[in-house]
Computed example of a mutant assay.
Amino acid sequence: MSLPGPTPPPSDYTTYGAPQYANGQLLDGQDAGQAFPGQYGGFPGQYGAEPQKSFLATWLFSLLLGGFGVDRFYLGKIGTGIAKLLTLGGFGIWSLVDLIITLAGRQTDKNRRPLAGYVQHKKMALLVTVVLLVVNLVIGVLAGIAAAALVRQAATPPIVSAAPVTQESATSSAEPTATGDAAAGEDRPHLEAQTLTGNGDAVKTVDLKGLPAVVTFTCEACSGSTSLETNGAEILLVNTTGAYTGSHLVDTSAGVPTTEFNISADSAWTLKIEDIDSVPSSTEKVSGHGDQVLFWDVLTDKAAITNKGEGTFVVQGFGSEVPELAVNKAGDYSGTVTLTPGFVQVNSDGDWTITPK
């Protein structure tokens, strides 16, 4: 005679004494294999498993923040994420490779599981990526064109290399000399000299015909703030206090031409505008005081320069393709520098000398 066996569990129980919902989750939030280990074990697809990582989030992180390793941090790959961060995306190469792998559907999380949502979003992700790459390429090309334009604007045009043929109103110790370059300069257009006068602040309109010029500004009786500005590339030529006399080059490069001078003074002033042929030519040591323009017509590109003054001392040469800043110091100066033969602009508030070496 057989004994009655145990009563089988109801159909909604997966483990004896453990009521469970149809999806396999226990009332206390644990699966049967965790709460009641035994012959039934765990069930695949239980709620305790980590959800898949999103393809959309991984793609956005890789596209926008891949250089910082954010995409790999998101996927749980902490080690490679740190390496990617420290190398700024493997100098860009690693970031690009990860982006391609993600768009190709080959990216996985740390448990080697595929990303969720790839099929639904892959076309949109690929389209947006291509558009952004094209936009970045166009921006890069435009930036390169703008940079090249700035370099060309800074370069001195050949017209400025024509040597002067006279020495008028010069304080140089050297005698003027005519050169072959001077004869060549006679074939180019020349600017007719003009003198503007006034008393106090004024704005003067001029037509330099797109030619480089030398302007000499004088305000002997000024006692307050004295300045001379242009709307061209040079902008601020004079900014001092009290009396002033000095000369400056304007429109030395193919940039924005000067059409206006803005004078600030508290007394009578004169502004003389001349062609660059009026610049004195110097073949040996030259000395001067204050701001001055000269033509450095020597057989060497080395010069010993001195200055005795308190303000900023600047020597800028225009003999090469790009203007060279030979000296830019404050106060007294003494040294030997490279100075290509050609036009030279000196800015000083004291006495200076330039000697060929």
Score class of each variant (00 low, 15 high):
Thr258Glu: 02
Gly29Pro: 00
Asn347Pro: 09
Asn111Phe: 03
Val314Trp: 00
Ser247Arg: 00
Asp12Leu: 12
Cys222Phe: 06
Val160Tyr: 04
Arg106Thr: 14
Gly317Lys: 02
Asn307Lys: 07
Asp266Trp: 04
Leu191Trp: 10
Glu321Asn: 07
Ser225Cys: 06
Trp269Leu: 00
Glu168Ala: 15
Pro4Thr: 15
Thr216Val: 11
Ala104Tyr: 04
Thr230Glu: 13
Val70Ala: 13
Thr306Trp: 12
Gly33Ile: 08
Pro157Ala: 15
Asp98Leu: 11
Thr355Ala: 11
Gln46Asn: 10
Ala265Val: 01
Leu325Asn: 12
Cys222Ala: 10
Leu237Asp: 01
Asn111Arg: 00
Ala146Lys: 10
Pro8Thr: 02
Leu191Cys: 08
Thr259Tyr: 03
Val298Thr: 10
Met124Cys: 13
Thr205Tyr: 01
Glu50Thr: 11
Pro8Ala: 00
Tyr74Asp: 06
Val322Pro: 03
Gly311Lys: 09
Pro10Cys: 09
Ala155Trp: 14
Leu208Trp: 15
Gly45Lys: 11
Glu310Lys: 15
Gln34Asn: 15
Thr205Leu: 07
Asp12Lys: 11
Leu3Cys: 10
Val131Arg: 06
Thr245Phe: 13
Thr252Pro: 07
Asp207Gly: 07
Gly290Phe: 00
Ala57Thr: 14
Val70Ser: 12
Thr102Phe: 12
Val315Arg: 02
Gln194Val: 09
Ser227Ala: 04
Val315Asp: 00
Tyr21Pro: 00
Ile263Thr: 03
Gly144Ala: 14
Ser227Leu: 01
Ser320Ala: 15
Gly311Leu: 05
Lys122Ala: 05
Asp266Ser: 03
Lys285Cys: 11
Val344His: 06
Lys209Phe: 06
Leu249Thr: 09
Glu175Ile: 14
Gln52Tyr: 12
Val160Gly: 03
Asp349Arg: 00
Ser95Leu: 08
Asp266Asn: 10
Gly42Pro: 08
Thr226Ser: 12
Gly311Phe: 08
Leu115Asp: 00
Val346His: 08
Val344Leu: 05
Thr171Gln: 15
Lys209Ile: 02
Ser54Cys: 04
Ser173Phe: 06
Asp251Asn: 11
Ala170Asn: 03
Trp352Lys: 09
Trp59Cys: 05
Ala162Met: 14
Pro158Tyr: 04
Ala162Asp: 09
Pro157Gln: 14
Val130Glu: 04
Gln153Tyr: 02
Val119His: 15
Thr166Arg: 12
Asp71Ala: 04
Met1Cys: 14
Ser253Ile: 08
Phe261Trp: 10
Gly144His: 12
Gly48Lys: 03
Ser348Ala: 11
Glu234Arg: 01
Asp31Asn: 10
Asn199Thr: 05
Pro44Gln: 03
Ala147Phe: 13
Thr241Val: 15
Lys302Asp: 14
Gly105Val: 05
